[in-house]
């Protein structure tokens, strides 16, 4: 496949690690024993890294991107109704089509539906599961609706609280683009205090994880909207084959 004579499947531009958290971030304590001590090794991209699994729309259910309804058992979940939407693009601004976006989160009280969650003071919501998934369209656009998650206490230190956040997993068009991240919400004062957000070395990159209130897209008397765009690695054009 080619675009105007150049390969559409060139190598990915190398990851700029200054834009990402390092592996060892002692402020986030679990990273200490779970971070490699050796430097990463950088091989050249091969077909293995330039390709990725294809997920098709017919493998997904109709409510998979509707967290308000996809676990409702005879009632609606309790909490603030929101729509999350945005574009998945690569570093050069090209839309990433057919990207597989998965999201998971706590409920309105900060409680996760997970057998290992220990925050039992906040109850499970019987009508809220907390996960969804979707494919981006030809413009790289995705959307889902959900309940805004609550903050959550955790054992990093005795009084550590995560800001409200939604976890995102994105499978793009190449294995090298595989990314897991978290989105935060505009105006949340806990973002400044969070040791996990603080693993990111630059404030601009932290800001890039903050979903923005998008009032023009609020659904009146129904749901507020938040905009969260995602940037994946870009491909270098291959104008000439290696030969």
């Amino acid at each position: 496949m080619s675009i105007a004579g150049r390969s559409a499947y060139g190598e990915f531009v190398e990851r700029d690690h200054t834009q990402h958290p390092p592996a060892l971030t002692p402020g986030y304590r679990t990273s200490v024993l779970r971070s490699p001590r050796n430097a990463l090794i950088s091989p050249r991209n091969t077909v293995s890294e330039k390709t990725a699994p294809l997920i098709t729309a017919r493998e997904l259910g109709e409510l998979d991107n509707d967290l308000i309804l996809n676990f409702a058992h005879g009632g609606l979940p309790i909490g603030e109704r929101i729509i999350m939407h945005g574009y998945v693009r690569d570093e050069f601004g090209n839309p990433v089509k057919g990207a597989f976006v998965e999201a998971w989160q706590a409920n309105a009280g900060g409680r996760y539906r997970h057998k290992k969650d220990s925050y039992h003071l906040a109850p499970i919501d019987p009508n809220f599961g907390g996960c969804g998934r979707m494919l981006t369209d030809d413009n790289g656009y995705y959307f889902f609706r959900t309940i805004k998650p609550g903050p959550y206490p955790w054992g990093n230190s005795t009084n550590a609280w995560r800001p409200a956040h939604i976890h995102f997993s994105i499978m793009g068009d190449g294995w090298a683009q595989r990314l897991i991240t978290q989105s935060y919400f505009e105006g949340d004062p806990l973002i400044e205090q969070c040791p996990i957000a603080a693993t990111i070395p630059s404030r601009d990159q932290v800001r890039s994880l903050i979903a923005q209130a998008d009032t023009a897209n609020d659904a009146p008397f129904d749901a507020r909207a938040y905009r969260f765009d995602i940037t994946l690695r870009g491909r270098r054009a291959t104008f000439f084959e290696n030969a």
Binding site: R15, H20, E91, H114, H167, T181, S208, L209
Partner: peptide
């Protein structure tokens, strides 16, 4: 554009 920064997948 800078790549969206990674964050931990977390325990859940």
């Amino acid at each position: 554009r800078p790549e969206t920064p990674s964050q931990t997948g977390g325990p859940y």
